[in-house]
Design a protein around this nucleic acid. Structure first.
Length: 113
DNA sequence: ATGTTGACTTGGA
DNA sequence: GTCCAAGCCAACA
């Protein structure tokens, strides 16, 4: 993991997000150990458009469950459309029942244990 | 090496 | 409950 850049780590964790689930930038940042660099997580996603394999960035939202980065998808409806296909309802740019669909890598992966 | 930037988070009013 | 300000760290020029 040390060889991989912070970006790569973010990409990998993001790919681990199960379909139909969403996570927050802070959760990923915290999982990587850099809680304070929550911005970097989102910033990394900005570069995830052209990398491979593709990163399900649409499953990553802010702590509020709001699609803050939907504007970066090219189309304003692209992100919520992708989420809708994964049984994730989006209302007013916010994840419906976000708390229930929230997926915390640190808690789910539990690699510390 | 320094400065700017950013798909965030938290805390205080 | 909402709104504003500051902090945070890594990549890039």
């Amino acid at each position: 993991m040390d060889r991989a850049s912070f970006y790569e780590q973010v990409y990998q964790v993001t790919r681990l997000v199960p379909k139909g689930r969403v996570t927050s930038y802070g959760a990923i940042a915290s999982y990587l150990g850099t809680k304070g660099s929550s911005r970097m997580v989102g910033y990394a996603m900005a570069s995830s458009h052209q990398i491979s394999p593709p990163v399900p960035a649409h499953r990553v939202v802010n702590r509020n469950g709001v699609l803050t980065g939907k504007f970066h998808f090219g189309s304003l409806t692209a992100m919520e459309d992708l989420l809708a296909k994964e049984d994730v309802k989006v209302l007013d740019d916010k994840i419906v029942d976000f708390k229930n669909k929230f997926w915390d890598p640190a808690a789910e992966l539990d690699l510390e244990k």
